[in-house]
Nucleic acid binder design. Structure first.
Lengths: 163, 163
DNA sequence: CCTGATCATGTTGATATCAACCTATCTTGT
DNA sequence: ACAAGATAGGTTGATATCAACATGATCAGG
């Protein structure tokens, strides 16, 4: 109903003001740069740190599970693991029960690096929280969006017949 | 004060729950995929669409200004312009007043593509808004964060002496 | 057992992303 | 006019990112 008038084509300012995607990219890039810098002493990018964290649970996730956790493509995870494996921080085991499944896990060295980097992460995150001033609602909103847009952890349900 | 106890190293779940950077990446990736798909009929990625939009003002921005607008590195803009220039959608002019400055601008073809893609963008964005249900505060929060983390448009001030 | 469908992952090719370095241009002080 | 510093941009090398396709493993019927 409300879209009976496509009116004019989207203007530059409309996109700049409205586009969630644009703002999400802006935020993502700004934060990535920030944490990249904080983690540089440990030779990890923010993305690598997130990936290592995703592997750090008691039971190593499969590649697909890790991808889901990070809301990235499976093939991106495969690619991202390579530099880490080359450095001996992760090891990609095959699942004994299912030959298709791979379970990348942290090595001892990987655990050590992650532990040190984790301390730097916390310092950087505390600084960020401080800099954002009073507990803004922004972080919570970001997490909500994150969950809404790409729920994780639940058994995937295929596109059902429901419209 | 509150950091007298570094206590344990950050756990996986602490990072997963707290890390703004991780959630920002998740949101950015999910939205990028979404708009990539919406714009695919026009052979534009969400990033290319944003870049074209940034160039679409009356006075074409410099490379640095465009980078600032998108919160990306200058060299990323340079790289991102290449595929677009190759396809004849943008043209990189030199500023007549300052030989260092380049001003990438849309060609006629670029304008046409952007107009068509803009219509698709609006449809996709309307659908997204609808899907996010009631006017959540998330979008506003995202925009706030975006501005806080990487203000744009204002004359850059170098790191002041304030501690 | 086969055979086809399904599933997990890997590979390829294109683009995106950034830091570090490099070059060309402008500006300022002399 | 010249040299020194600042500024704008590009180049290089590494990694990240995804879609599309390809491979190999498992599973369900027969």
């Amino acid at each position: 109903m409300s879209k009976a008038l496509p009116s004019a084509l989207p203007s530059a300012s409309e996109v700049r003001d409205r586009c969630l995607c644009l703002h999400a990219q802006r935020v993502a890039r700004a934060l990535a740069r920030r944490f990249d810098e904080a983690l540089r002493p440990h030779d990890l990018t923010s993305g690598q740190f997130s990936l290592l964290t995703a592997l750090s649970g008691p039971q190593p996730p499969t590649v697909s599970e890790a991808a889901d956790l990070l809301a990235m493509d499976r093939s991106t995870v495969t690619a991202a693991l390579k530099p880490l494996a080359r450095r001996g921080l992760v090891l990609v085991d095959s699942d004994p029960a299912d030959g298709r499944v791979k379970r990348p896990r942290l090595t001892e060295a990987g655990c050590a690096v992650l532990a040190r980097a984790g301390a730097a992460w916390r310092i950087a995150h505390d600084a960020l929280d401080r800099e954002l001033g009073a507990p803004t609602e922004a972080p919570a909103a970001l997490r909500t969006l994150s969950t809404r847009l790409h729920p994780h952890g639940q058994p995937r349900m295929k596109a059902s017949s429901a419209s």
